[in-house]
């Protein structure tokens, strides 16, 4: 197996991209979960799907678009979707969670229209929905690497602001933190990571890579930094073992990765219960 990774470029690409995503998805996930926005990733991933479907449709009709990497269209849609989420959250101040079903159904609706116009399902689309080990190109790896660097850099630089906003938004505003700007930057980062992750985990399962490792982590973590550390550890464990298994057993990597994340979560919950006696 290990030799195969060295031998085949597509496997190497999948692993590099997977390891990067296994790091940044749970990293952002911690902030998402503690702010009780777990479903936002779901909403944005469906908008990303609409972007991919739009790209497939354009590629079918215009030769010019056929060679475009759908990653970029997905990213574009996802970022625009993120802006809508923030806008809706400020319009419906008292029903902030409403933004999520609105964006989610909008994304699905658009995707279905684009897909049917492009004459329905093909294997390419299937790989975007559920992830694929063989679909990651070298270009994808570079894009994922660039996104990972931007995300990690910004989270490090804005760590104390992001922490305060997550823990106590009112206090953050009172103490003079530029809350709106930081929200905006954060949600754009989430959109970018979702677009970057879809090749490996797939659109339908990416939100679980942002939330499941965090759900396990906050059961046992002392403090926020530790919560981030455990989340990334669990995320990487799911991705690496998931990719190995999916290659070995010829399964869709998205499903394997997510089921491993579920398994880790179960183990942590049981271990915690058992420890308490």
């Amino acid at each position: 197996m290990i030799e195969a990774i060295w031998q085949y470029e597509f496997l190497r690409n999948a692993f590099i991209a997977g390891i990067l995503i296994g790091f940044v998805a749970p990293l952002l996930g911690v902030f998402i979960v503690v702010r009780r926005l777990s479903l936002i990733a779901d909403a944005l991933s469906h908008v990303t799907l609409a972007g991919i479907a739009a790209n497939l449709l354009l590629g079918k009709n215009f030769a010019y678009f056929a060679n475009w990497n759908p990653l970029y269209a997905g990213m574009g849609f996802s970022v625009v979707g993120a802006l809508f989420v923030e806008k809706l959250r400020s319009i419906y101040k008292y029903y902030q969670e409403l933004a999520i079903p609105i964006i989610l159904s909008g994304g699905i609706g658009l995707s279905v229209i684009f897909i049917s116009l492009a004459d329905g399902f093909n294997t390419d689309l299937f790989s975007y929905l559920f992830g694929s080990v063989s679909a990651v190109s070298r270009q994808d790896v570079w894009a994922v690497l660039a996104i990972a660097c931007v995300v990690i850099g910004i989270v490090v630089l804005l760590y104390k602001e992001l922490f305060l906003l997550s823990f106590d938004e009112e206090y953050a505003v009172i103490s003079g933190i530029r809350a709106k700007l930081i929200h905006f930057i954060f949600i754009v980062l989430v959109a970018l990571v979702i677009a970057a992750s879809m090749r490996i985990v797939g659109v339908l399962l990416i939100s679980s890579l942002m939330t499941l490792p965090v759900a396990a982590s906050i059961r046992i973590a002392k403090g926020f930094k530790q919560a981030i550390g455990y989340s990334i550890l669990f995320g990487e464990l799911s991705v690496i073992v998931g990719l190995l298994l999916s290659y070995q057993l010829d399964l869709a990597p998205g499903g394997t990765i997510v089921m491993l994340a579920v398994l880790i979560l179960l183990i942590v919950i049981i271990w915690k219960k058992w420890k308490r006696g």
Binding site: V34, F163, F167, Y171, A221, K222, G223, F224, K225, Q226
Partner: peptide
């Protein structure tokens, strides 16, 4: 349920 230590909260 927020995973933050006393130290982290005060530092914020």
């Amino acid at each position: 349920g927020f995973p933050a230590t006393v130290y982290e909260v005060v530092a914020s």
